[in-house]
Simulated scan of single mutants.
Amino acid sequence: MEHGPTFYAVAVVAVLISAVSKGGFGSGAGFVSAPLLALVMPPAQAVGLLLPLLMLMDVTSLKSYWRKWDWRHARLLMIGGVPGTLLGWWLFRSISADGVRLMVGAMALGFVLFQIARQRRWLRPPPGDRGTPAGLFWGTITGFTSFVSHAGGPPATMYLLGAGLDKTTYQATTVIVFWFINAIKLPFYLALGMFTAESALVNFILGPIAVAGVFIGVWAHDLVEEKLFFRLTYALLAVAGGKLIYDALT
């Protein structure tokens, strides 16, 4: 497909928000990139286009948070992410473009509802260490939702917020977890034919924005109030998710 000014206007915003989130805000808003891009290109291509950029963000973030993570919780999410990735691959190869569009849209709206429920304290993760089974369970959900639409943030959050981690340890743990999960997704995306020469060119153009956004996020980690940043992304997710569901059903 042809990538004109409208595409790049949306793509720059999507990649920048995702990179800033990954660099400084626990990857929570990073999910906005897939629903936004799916508005201007086929959803499966949007998900495939984003993976190399997310991997670039992961590598850029690692240096700033190196070994600041909680390894026990990270390891459980990473191990659980393997069967979740396999499940996502099995489902992804079996559904139509509208099916992918519907899933991405539903996850976008579900993410917004999840955040509203958290903020209003309707949904609270159980406090304390919930043990190995909980970590593996949430890791599986994280791997699955990450594979389908790079939406692994909410299930990882549900597990990590109950672990009592400080802000930096939490951020560092999400960085190493999604570095691993995105890496193991790569061969499955290749098998599904989700990368093209055209998408590689777009990745090359957007790569500097991804790197710059991560550094902006690292800088903003201790300086910027999170509420305004997340409110913007939730609004974008609600609009994009609703539009994708409408398009899939009509």
Rank of each mutant, 00 (worst) to 15 (best):
Y159A: 05
M41W: 08
A248E: 08
V214H: 01
T233G: 10
W138L: 11
T142D: 04
K63A: 14
A9Q: 09
T6L: 15
G131F: 11
F7E: 03
A210M: 02
W179D: 11
V224R: 03
L190A: 15
L86T: 09
I245T: 07
A238C: 11
T169G: 04
V100E: 00
V211W: 01
P83Q: 06
R75W: 11
V175E: 08
F137T: 11
L87D: 03
V47N: 15
H150M: 12
W122L: 13
M194H: 08
G139N: 04
S94M: 10
T145P: 03
L109Y: 00
I205E: 11
F178D: 05
L160N: 01
G84W: 01
M194T: 08
F144C: 08
W219C: 00
S149H: 10
P43K: 06
L102I: 02
T140A: 13
T174M: 15
L186M: 13
I216S: 05
I205C: 05
L102F: 14
H221E: 06
S27Y: 13
M107D: 02
A11N: 10
F230A: 00
P126Q: 12
P43I: 04
M194Q: 14
I141P: 02
A44F: 05
F188V: 06
V224F: 13
H3W: 13
T196A: 11
W71K: 12
I184F: 07
L56R: 01
A134G: 04
F215P: 00
M158E: 11
D166N: 15
H73M: 09
T196W: 04
P133K: 02
G193T: 08
I205P: 08
F7K: 10
N182A: 08
F178K: 03
P5C: 06
M57F: 03
K227Y: 09
L77A: 07
L237E: 07
L91F: 08
S96E: 09
P127G: 13
P52N: 03
A117P: 07
F195T: 02
Y246R: 11
I95P: 00
Y8V: 05
F114P: 01
I116F: 10
F215K: 12
A200K: 03
V10G: 04
F111Q: 12
L165F: 01
A172Q: 06
W69E: 15
W138Q: 12
F111V: 05
L86D: 10
F92T: 05
S18W: 10
L113N: 01
A163C: 13
M78S: 06
S18C: 12
P43W: 05
S64Q: 12
G143A: 09
A183T: 14
P133R: 04
P42D: 05
G105W: 04
A220Y: 00
P126N: 11
K243N: 13
L186Q: 09
L76C: 08
A34H: 05
K185A: 09
L206P: 01
V239Y: 09
Y189S: 07
E226V: 14
K167D: 12
V214D: 01
G213I: 03
G48I: 00
T173Y: 05
A163G: 09
F111I: 01
V20W: 05
M41I: 09
D70N: 14
D98W: 05
R72H: 12
L123A: 09
G241W: 04
L56A: 14
L237I: 03
